[in-house]
Amino acid sequence: MFANHKYIAFETIVVKEVRRFTRIWLQTLVPPAITIGLYYLIFGNLIGRRIGEMGGYDYIDFIVPGLIMMAVIQNAYSNVSSSFFSNKFQRCVEEILVSPVPNYIILLGFVAGGMARGLAVGIIVTLMSFVFTSLSIEHVWLTILVVLLTAMVFSLAGFINALFANTFDDISIIPTFVLTPLIYLGGVFYSIELLPAAGQWVSALNPVLYMVNTFRFGILGSSDVNIYWALFMLVVFSAVLFAVALILLRRGTGLRH
């Protein structure tokens, strides 16, 4: 396939993915806005005033970056897992599989779709945060880079989830049992300084911690973790997940008998 043909194929997948989540915006864009808005209101505004400071910032300022990140992660993941699984379920994934689109373009297309949803929700909840506090972004490029890498990592993870899934249950099990605990224990709501040594050590194994903290550093200018190390880890995670997804696609796991 020629390079320009590949680009057209990529664009086709991305446009289709974006059209999908904007068409069903009531299911894709509104729920995270409501949930995160409630977090802002209850934890940030009402309870946060009593908590006082966290990691050297007002509690609302501390959790806003974490909550934005949470929204990005959940939405990037669920966009790809549910869209790709429903393509499998309805068998229309065969439309792509019989065509000459190379596997990496299929993967990039769906991942870009997931990133688009993650970013769209990220922007919505960022704009909403202005109602509760007025954050300025300290390191703009770093912030953007971290959001993009995080959205990519979880889009890839959602893709792999969808490859293995045989039922709709299979794409809600991982978010419930793996993703949610990782996010809630990943420093969205508290600084890991609060934890005892053992807790800090366990938290260091949680990839979400690096994403949340690097993002928070980008916005606030302070972080629990080493930024370069965190960025490096994000790149490694992306590369590993990308390779795994490609190998699975090549084998036809969950797609070809």
Binding site: K6, E95, S99, P100
Partner: peptide
């Protein structure tokens, strides 16, 4: 859209 999308998979502008 179904037919258009398929065209896109084959690199048709």
């Amino acid at each position: 859209d179904i037919v258009m999308t398929q065209a896109g998979y084959y690199g048709l502008k």
